[in-house]
Design a protein around this nucleic acid. Structure first.
Length: 388
DNA sequence: AGGACACATTTCCATACGGG
DNA sequence: CCCGTATGGAAATGTGTCCT
């Protein structure tokens, strides 16, 4: 090939600079969010107080009860500050967990409270999975553990990561990036081939060092590897590649959030042109329904959708397949969500997919020609600043 | 495995109606 | 007239599907 190292293409570099400025301007209200980290000792005290109230209740023959929020739906949400959040926090409905009615649930909560208390005291961390296996007969399913931990987070007004409970990392990151962790001066070098696993405890990161000019978030591992094979890192110039392998886990989203906060470089999303791809892009960008309370820490409004846009399929004659029944159901569901309804450009793309009835995967681009993805598609999208 | 949801099932509660 | 039960609807919870 005609050694077109795009990195040295002046129009490409200037496009990146322009996009960077534009995105920073559009999202400058987002730049100062920093977590109110709860100190260990405060959390410990809170747990002790919570347990004390229950003991008091019992000694006064009152039934112990806990209050947790009800599961939210899309109609309870709207977009605030470009992130998914509750319409009206004062209208939030609560559910009471009573000992006589929800014995099991309360037992699990207090059991886990004890474990969390222990974690905080010992300054160690644990995964949901480990917790589950410590007492399978009590928890019955891993989901029970997760629900209970989220309940506890609400009761203590904190987050799973401050409680030191994590899900096992699934995401990969590659590129010129050094991650310095606070504990024992560990340094993760993300330049290794095939990328490295996103660190378990993103909150331990003390410093991120990178020469990258932008980040590309890829929906799935296959496309991630494909891009690495095409040597995207050198062809497009210094950049980072990240994938959550499907629906991103919390750690991956936290890391990406941190990357945006610290490096302030453009973040582009490359997803399939199908309803799931769009949903995944939106999860990164606006946050998710089930983690609604943590949108501040997880949503990254600065993300721009690089492709594949439904309008690209016809414009670039990309091979496509028809949408299935399930795809159509999902698509209509997406169309009703607040973040799509709030954004004319996203709505336009959704409508395009509805009318065309076509979808395609990232891999379909490679059929057109070798290195098409890197040299043509990504490059052209960025130079033309066709991002949504 | 892990994440997000839609859909299904069960549980719960308020209201209304009928029998004692 | 009061109480108990029947019943409908909502909410809590569980299951199944889709994705990588």
């Amino acid at each position: 090939m005609e050694s077109n190292k795009t990195a040295h293409n002046p129009s490409f570099s200037s496009a990146i600079v322009l996009l960077r400025r534009k995105i920073r301007r559009e999202t400058k209200d987002q730049n100062v969010v920093l977590p109110h980290k709860q100190s260990r000792s405060k959390l410990l005290t809170k747990i002790e107080k919570l347990i004390l109230t229950v003991v008091e209740d019992i000694s006064f023959s009152k039934e112990p009860k806990l209050q947790v929020p009800r599961r939210s739906t899309w109609v309870d949400c709207n977009i605030v500050n470009r992130k998914l959040s509750l319409k009206d926090k004062s209208q939030l409905k609560y559910q009471e967990i009573l000992y006589t009615k929800n014995t099991k649930r309360m037992t699990v909560i207090f059991n886990l409270l004890a474990k969390v208390h222990n974690l905080l005291q010992n300054r160690t961390s644990v995964t949901y999975r480990e917790l589950y296996y410590q007492h399978t007969d009590l928890y019955e399913s891993q989901n029970t553990v997760k629900t209970a931990i989220l309940d506890i987070c609400h009761l203590l007004n904190t987050s799973p990561w401050d409680l030191r409970v994590f899900s096992t990392s699934k995401g990969l990151i590659a590129g010129p990036l050094l991650i310095k962790l606070g504990d024992n001066e560990t340094i993760i070098n993300c330049l290794s081939k095939g990328g490295v696993l996103v660190p378990q405890n993103v909150k331990k990161i003390v410093k991120l060092e990178s020469s990258a000019k932008f980040v590309i978030v890829v929906e799935k591992d296959a496309a991630f590897q494909k891009l690495l094979e095409e040597e995207v890192l050198s062809r497009l110039g210094p950049c980072l590649l990240l994938t959550g392998k499907g629906e991103p886990d919390i750690n991956t989203r936290l890391l990406l959030h941190r990357l945006w906060q610290d490096l302030k470089i453009p973040i582009f999303a490359l997803v399939d042109s199908d309803p799931y791809g769009i949903e995944i892009m939106c999860t990164y960008r606006f946050g998710s329904l089930s983690m609604l309370e943590y949108s501040e820490h997880l949503a990254i409004p600065a993300i721009r959708w690089l492709g594949i846009h439904p309008t690209d399929i016809d414009a670039l004659s990309i091979p496509s397949v028809p949408l299935t029944t399930n795809d159509n159901i999902k698509l209509l569901d997406l169309a009703g969500r607040p973040y799509i309804q709030n954004d004319a450009n996203l709505m336009k793309q959704i409508n395009c997919m509805i009318t065309s009835g076509k979808k395609c995967e990232i891999e379909n681009l490679s059929i057109l020609s070798t290195n098409f993805l890197t040299d043509v598609f990504l490059c052209a999208k960025i130079i033309s600043k066709e991002v949504i």
